[in-house]
Design a binder for these strands. Structure first.
Lengths: 217, 217
DNA sequence: ATAAAATGTTAGATGCCTCTAATATTTTAA
DNA sequence: TTAAAATATTAGAGGCATCTAACATTTTAT
């Protein structure tokens, strides 16, 4: 178990390297809100610990050991989020910041118990998959709401959780995980989308919002 | 909000100064398992922050500000312990170490919710009082099992929680908070005590164990 | 192909928290 | 009452995590 700071670096590297498999120093610095040299010196330390593969002027990659640690933290984060919603009755928009802290709690027993109480759940309240205790992740094939043709109906399965304000926005629009929506109109001009929702109301989403909503047909 | 380390110092100073109102550097060093100079330099920092009153070669005292912070941490610790037992179904002997971590979670909402779910509880699973959100503590007049005369019957209200092994010991003997016990015999020779318990069984406790059990007549 | 822009690294400093070794003060006991 | 023991402090160093300023490399665009 590394320090809290170390865990946050590992987690961010994992998140940012999802698509390309690597991260740039500047991306990481931006994400963690530190300056470039801070990232640089942390990379040296993590490389010594064999958590990242790092060569000067090259992208940063997690080693297998680093990935394993990242997935363990993500598992704890997502279990915590679901626990906060299901057991403690908090709103999905307010659990992220608390889970950011709970994910660093070192207690197998605590998380084993949460897992039991929630019946080994597969997805967190934002629809993100929860890795199992071996770090195995049940990936879903994802389609963004933005890629759906007019007339199609789909079910919201997940949202990309970046900031509380985004979830507040969805709450205000009345959208939740599991809701069925039909694409009424796609505006070419600004990329916005009009949906028909179970509430019978028409909902307008900007491109920026729609691209962060994942659906299944 | 100070650092985790700072919070642990404050909490330990509070605990150790309960009786006399002050702590010695060496006591604190022992409790926190650090060397004397570490305590010394931390005291200087805490004094600058007005959390402790500290003069060289004199005992350490918490300021009002320091006490308030200590009580806030203790409140979180004890709420967490009760939550772990009542809501999560963990044993009273295994919650201390988890609560040591949860007490540092910074989220008024999280603790407000725990307090609600537990119905603003007054005591933790070990019988220790939970300070209210203003730091006010509902102190009980306490009698130790060791001070009870033969023939008297009393109810266990609290135990002094120092180590898991002590609670394991009580579990093995079948003793719990709320149990009624009658003093059958007090041995002058070694200070041990024989109890009659609701289970009808006779239980022998050594002086060392009995003095850490608090009762009400 | 080279100059400018973007990105990354090194050097050196700071604060936090810890340590060991050396020194100082207070307490205790002869 | 003074020497020894116990307790506390200072000096100086090291690791972690951060920063600014200066320098190096890579990418890009003319």
């Amino acid at each position: 178990m590394g320090s809290l700071t170390e865990e946050n670096y590992i987690k961010s590297i994992y998140a940012l390297s999802q698509s390309t498999g690597e991260v740039y120093v500047s991306e990481l610095a931006k994400k963690l809100d530190v300056k470039l040299p801070s990232v640089n010196s942390m990379m040296k330390r993590l490389a010594i610990k064999k958590l990242v593969a790092y060569a000067p002027y090259k992208g940063i990659k997690l080693t297998e050991k680093g990935k394993k640690e990242a997935l363990a933290i993500i598992r704890k984060h997502r279990l915590a989020e679901l626990f906060l919603v299901k057991v403690m009755g908090l709103g999905w928009e307010e659990v992220h910041d608390i889970a950011e802290q709970l994910e660093h709690v070192n207690s197998p027993r605590f998380y084993e118990r949460i897992d039991e109480l929630l019946n080994s759940p597969k997805f967190d309240p934002h629809g993100e998959p929860i890795p199992d205790s071996n770090g195995k992740i049940h990936t879903q094939q994802r389609t963004s709401l933005i890629d759906l043709a007019e007339g199609l109906t789909a079910t919201i399965t997940a949202v990309t959780e970046d900031e509380k304000s985004f979830l507040d926005h969805l709450n205000a629009k009345g959208l939740q995980i599991g809701d069925a929506v039909t694409i009424m109109k796609r505006e070419m001009f600004d990329g916005s989308i009009t949906l028909q929702h179970k509430s019978k109301k028409e909902i307008l989403l900007t491109h920026q919002v729609a691209e962060r909503i994942w659906v299944e047909l």
